[in-house]
C-alpha cells in the first residue's frame, strides 16, 4: 500500500511491537502473557510490515521462511518434552535450573523452551497465512 503515513508509522511501530511481543512472552513466565499471545503480537508486527511494504520486503526482513519457523517451533516443543526423559522422568515434566547472579537470579526451565516453541509456531503460522493471502 502506498501511503506515507502508513510507511512512516510502520517503521516506528514495528520495533516497538516486536519488543512488546517479547515483553509479553517473558512476562508470561509468572504473570498473564506467554508464548501464544506474544507470538500473536509478533506476527502482528510482520503483518503490518507486509501491508505497508508488501510480502517480498517482509520476507527479506524476516530472513527465514515462516514455515521453517513453524518446524523449529515444533521441534523445540518436542525437545522440551524429551529433556526430562534423560533423567528418567515422564515426558513433559517441568525441569528447572536456577542460576544466582548475586542480586538477581535467572530461572531457566523446560517450560521456557516449550513457550519459545509456541511463540515460533504462532508467528510462523500467522505469517504463512498472511503471505499466502497477500500473494493470491
Amino acid at each position: 500500500m502506498k501511503s506515507l503515513i502508513l510507511h512512516t508509522a510502520t517503521r516506528l511501530m514495528i520495533g516497538i511491537m516486536i519488543l512488546f511481543s517479547l515483553f509479553l512472552f517473558f512476562r508470561g513466565h509468572d504473570e498473564p502473557g506467554g508464548g501464544f499471545i506474544g507470538g500473536l503480537v509478533g506476527a502482528g508486527a510482520f503483518t503490518l510490515y507486509a501491508i505497508a511494504f508488501g510480502t517480498e520486503a517482509t520476507r527479506k526482513v524476516l530472513r527465514v521462511n515462516p514455515i521453517t519457523l513453524i518446524s523449529i517451533g515444533l521441534l523445540s516443543l518436542v525437545v522440551s518434552g524429551l529433556i526430562p526423559m534423560f533423567v528418567a522422568e515422564p515426558f513433559l515434566t517441568g525441569k528447572w535450573l536456577f542460576i544466582e547472579w548475586g542480586a538477581v537470579d535467572t530461572k531457566l526451565s523446560t517450560p521456557l523452551i516449550f513457550d519459545i516453541g509456541v511463540y515460533l509456531c504462532v508467528v510462523g503460522f500467522i505469517v504463512t497465512v498472511i503471505f499466502s493471502l497477500e500473494e493470491e
Binding site: 518446524s71 523449529i72 516443543l77 522422568e89
Partner: peptide, 24 residues
C-alpha cells in the same frame, strides 16, 4: 511408569518437523 510409552507419539512428531524443515 514407563517413559517409552510417549515414543509412538514423539517419534512421528519429530519426523514430521524434520520433514517440514527439509521440505525442499
Amino acid at each position: 511408569m514407563n517413559g517409552m510409552l510417549v515414543l509412538p507419539i514423539a517419534i512421528p512428531l519429530i519426523t514430521a518437523t524434520l520433514a517440514l524443515l527439509f521440505r525442499k
